[in-house]
Simulated scan of single mutants.
Amino acid sequence: MDHGASTSSFPVRHKNLSVHIKESKIDIVICSYDDQFLVIATQIGTMGTIMHARKEEGMLNTPTFNVSVIFGKRDEPMLLACARQLIEHISNSGSSKPLTLSLGLKDHSVEALKSIVSAVIENRLW
C-alpha cells in the first residue's frame, strides 16, 4: 500500500491507517463511495477474502443482515463475524449503504479481528 498517496488527488473519500497486533502490522483502507463502503484490511499486501454485507429490511421492522463471501475462504466464521459487526454498526449509525470488506490476514485471531473492527469504527466514514 502506498501511504504517500494524497487524499485530495483520490476522487473517493477515504482514509488509510495501520494497526499493530503483536509484532504484525495490518494496513487498512476505508473508502466511502456513493452507493457503498469499501474496507480493505491486509497483512499480506493483497485483497484476501472478499465479503459483501448488507442490511435487509424485514417486514417485522427488525432488520436482518446478509453477509456473503464473494471470493476466498468460505469456512472462516470469524471473518463473517467481522463483516457482520461492521454492517450492524453502519446500519445503527443511520446509513443504509452496503459494505464490501476484504480481509487479507495471516492472523485470524479474535484479537486481530477486534482490532480491525475497532480501528474501522474509530475512523469511519459513515
Rank of each mutant, 00 (worst) to 15 (best):
A53E: 03
I44K: 12
D75T: 15
H89T: 14
A5G: 03
I90G: 04
L105S: 10
E57L: 10
G45T: 08
F65N: 05
V39Y: 03
L17T: 08
S24N: 08
A5I: 11
G45D: 06
R84W: 11
V39E: 06
V117K: 02
L60F: 10
H52K: 12
N16A: 11
G58S: 14
K114M: 09
D27P: 00
P77M: 05
I50Q: 07
M1W: 01
D75M: 06
L103M: 09
G104W: 05
T62G: 04
G45Q: 02
S91Q: 07
D34W: 05
H3P: 00
Q85F: 00
S6Q: 11
I21K: 06
H3R: 09
I30D: 04
L80T: 10
D35Q: 12
V117R: 06
H20E: 14
K97E: 09
T42H: 07
K97C: 09
S91I: 01
T49L: 01
Q43D: 12
S8Q: 12
L125Q: 06
N92Y: 13
M78E: 12
L80P: 03
D27W: 03
F10T: 01
L60R: 00
S24E: 12
I40S: 15
S68Q: 12
S115V: 09
S96H: 14
L103Q: 03
S6E: 13
E23R: 08
M1G: 08
K15E: 13
K22S: 07
V12E: 01
I30G: 04
S91L: 08
A5N: 09
